[in-house]
Computed example of a mutant assay.
Amino acid sequence: MKEIRIFAPGTVANVACGFDVMGFALDNPGDEMVLRTIPEKTVRITKIDGFNLPLDAAKNVAGVALLSLLSEVKEKVGFEVEIYKKIKPGSGIGSSAASSAGAVVAANKLLGEPFSKTDLARFAMEGERLASGTAHADNIAPAIFGGFTLVRSYQPLDIISIDTPDELYATVIHPQIEVKTSDAREILKRNVLLKDAIRQWGNVGGLVAGLMKSDYDLISRSLEDAIVEPIRSILIPAFQEVKLKSKEAGALGGGISGSGPSIFMLSRGEATAQKVKAIMAEIYDKVGIEYDIHLSKVNKEGVKIISQK
């Protein structure tokens, strides 16, 4: 196999209470990437379609992730890369993670799959380090593993796949404003009250249990962020109204997608997710901010192969 084309999914990170440790993959939006092997130990990004991003591999998240992977490959091989970018950088839907994860999954396929999914996450995290200054895995993990994931530990890296209830749908609205991950991290408090930490731990445990048991009521009760959301939500216009009215329409709950500005809501069944979509649109039409809305089942596969030759 000399060439592969893949779909790299958007992802929702944090999932309310799971800051830097929980995330899930979407069926849409997503990027496409083409990788080819070349007989030199280097990475060449030859095309980026969609957004003005650097072609220099050392300054591009996909390039950095691939260079990290190549540092552990003995043979003389490298990659030529084309990126067809559909996820807007700074959207809060895992744009940098899609490029980083998609690149290493495709490269691993071309090499005959010498690396585990955890290895691939470790390489892709270097792209996140370039993008935000922190090598976090809450977007990377679901992009590679699919479905819902929990990063149990960073040292050593330990990623757990969590069962996804069949009727779970996500509605994600992306207001057309930019919130940089690095800026959103900068405003966070460095210390957390013990009572808030205890509340958050309980919600994380409840959310994991709710997902594994397909207990939608428990999922709903657990989608609460006592630490990060109260600070970051001030950066997102109409956030509280979207969340309140979506829950009134039957959504289980939701919050900020990643560092924002996107807002996600989880629902049981597509009909409720469609109601939430209409409410989100109505609110942002009134506010006067342009937006994109994505309605998706949870993507249980993660990065998907489109074609190979």
Rank of each mutant, 00 (worst) to 15 (best):
I234Y: 15
L26W: 08
L35E: 11
G10F: 04
M22H: 02
N191E: 14
A25T: 05
Q155I: 13
G78Y: 06
N28T: 08
I160M: 12
D196G: 04
I87C: 14
K109F: 11
A271P: 09
E241L: 08
E32Q: 07
I293L: 02
E72L: 11
I93G: 10
I140M: 03
A170G: 10
I140Y: 06
I6T: 10
L110T: 10
P156I: 15
L235N: 06
V61T: 14
F115D: 04
E75N: 03
V228D: 09
L120H: 03
A58M: 11
A124I: 11
P114M: 06
V73C: 11
K297V: 15
E301P: 11
S153D: 12
I219V: 14
K47E: 08
S222V: 00
N60P: 04
D56I: 01
F7R: 05
I177F: 10
Q240Y: 14
D215Y: 13
M125A: 14
S100P: 06
R199C: 06
G255C: 10
V34Q: 07
A124R: 04
L207D: 01
N52W: 12
L218V: 09
K47P: 04
M1V: 15
D225V: 00
E32F: 03
H174C: 15
G146W: 06
R221I: 03
N108M: 15
I234G: 10
I231N: 13
V303K: 03
E113V: 05
A57P: 01
G23S: 05
V77D: 04
G18Q: 06
L244I: 13
I83F: 03
V43N: 03
Y169L: 03
I4R: 09
V34N: 09
K245L: 10
Q176K: 14
I83C: 04
